[in-house]
Computed example of a mutant assay.
Amino acid sequence: MSDLYSRIYDVVRLIPAGRATSYGAIARFVGSPRGSRMVGWAMNQCHAHEEYTPAHRVVNRLGILSGKHHFPGENLMQELLESEGLVVLDDQIQNFDQVFWDPFKELNWNAI
């Protein structure tokens, strides 16, 4: 696993239940501001690692579940988010700005 993927996973594991963030927010935080797609690729690979990574909490900048097709079943990503209290309609987290978790605001820089 690359060092970048490790840093991405470390940040994603800190997202609390009931909150969500974007690929871009994670990319910026780990020092790769144009690396949103890389974060998406990392989320797609995280199931292969021993430590649990809540990839369902990472969505696109509009709160759309753009990675849902990488989860088993038809609606697992949505079901996981809803089980944490988020409301998802038409593959989009409702009130995304209110549940958005910004690592720059939420984390101590020494956390990862």
Results as ranks from 00 to 15, higher is better:
E74R: 15
D91F: 06
D91I: 01
E51L: 11
Y52N: 04
Q92K: 15
D102C: 14
M43V: 02
R37W: 07
A17T: 07
V88T: 07
F71W: 13
F104V: 00
I15T: 01
L4V: 13
P16V: 11
E82T: 14
E50Q: 10
H70F: 12
V12H: 08
R28T: 02
R13L: 03
R37T: 14
M1Q: 06
G35A: 08
R61V: 09
Q98R: 15
Y5K: 11
E84R: 05
C46G: 07
H47R: 14
F71N: 03
E84A: 08
V12G: 13
E74A: 11
S22Q: 03
S2L: 10
P33I: 05
G85Y: 04
I64P: 00
V39Q: 03
D97A: 09
L4F: 07
I8E: 03
T53G: 05
A48Y: 12
Q45E: 14
F104P: 03
N95R: 13
A20S: 06
M43I: 02
N75I: 06
E51W: 02
Q78G: 03
P33Q: 02
I8W: 01
A42D: 06
F29C: 05
A55W: 04
L89R: 15
S83V: 03
G31E: 04
V58K: 08
A42E: 08
G73L: 01
V12L: 09
I8T: 02
L4Y: 06
N95D: 15
A17W: 04
E79H: 09
S66P: 02
M38V: 15
L4P: 01
N44T: 13
N75H: 15
I64H: 11
P33E: 06
E84G: 04
M43E: 03
D10S: 15
E84L: 05
Q45A: 14
G85A: 05
Y23P: 07
Y23C: 10
N75Q: 12
R19D: 03
